[in-house]
Simulated assay, not measured.
Amino acid sequence: MTWVPGGAFTMGSDRFYPEEAPLRRVSVDAFWIDTTPVTNRQFAAFVEATGYTTIAQIAPDPKNYPGMLPGMDQAGSLVFRKTSGPVDLADPSNWWHFEFGADWRHPAGPEEDLDNLDLWDHPVVHVAYADALAYSHWAGKRLPTEAEFEFAARGGLVSKEYAWGDELAPDGSMMANYWQGLFPFANQMLDGWEGTSPVGTYPANSYGIVDMIGNTWEWTSDWWSDRRTVIKVIKKSKGSCCTLSNPRGGTLKNSFDSSQPGVRIGRKVLKGGSHLCAANFCQRYRPAARHPEMIDTSTSHIGFRCVVEG
Rank of each mutant, 00 (worst) to 15 (best):
I58M: 05
L143M: 06
R305E: 01
A45G: 09
T50R: 02
G195E: 09
S300H: 14
I234Y: 08
A75C: 12
P184D: 08
L190K: 05
T10D: 14
Y52M: 06
T196H: 07
S93L: 11
T251F: 06
Q42I: 07
G200Y: 02
Q283H: 13
W223E: 09
E148I: 02
L252V: 11
V38F: 09
P66I: 05
E19A: 11
M175V: 04
V47D: 12
S245Q: 11
E309L: 14
Y129T: 04
Q260C: 03
D211K: 10
Y285A: 12
A108P: 07
E99Q: 11
H97M: 06
S197P: 08
V308F: 02
I234G: 08
F256T: 05
L23K: 07
G12Q: 13
R142T: 13
P92C: 01
V87L: 06
G192Y: 09
A21S: 12
I295Q: 01
D131I: 05
G239L: 06
T35W: 07
D115W: 07
D73A: 13
Q188N: 11
S136A: 14
M11G: 04
N116M: 07
N177V: 04
G109E: 10
K232Y: 13
P22Q: 00
W193T: 10
H291N: 14
W179Y: 09
N177A: 01
A45M: 11
C282I: 08
P261N: 00
H122R: 15
S221L: 14
E161M: 11
M72K: 13
A139E: 12
D118R: 03
M175E: 14
G109T: 15
S298P: 14
R24H: 03
P144I: 00
A153I: 09
G214C: 06
P198W: 00
V38H: 07
I234Q: 11
M189H: 08
R228H: 13
A8D: 11
K268D: 03
G12T: 07
H122K: 14
G195N: 14
S221K: 10
L133C: 06
T297K: 07
F151L: 00
G12N: 10
F304C: 03
P62Y: 01
N116W: 06
V230S: 12
H275C: 12
L252I: 14
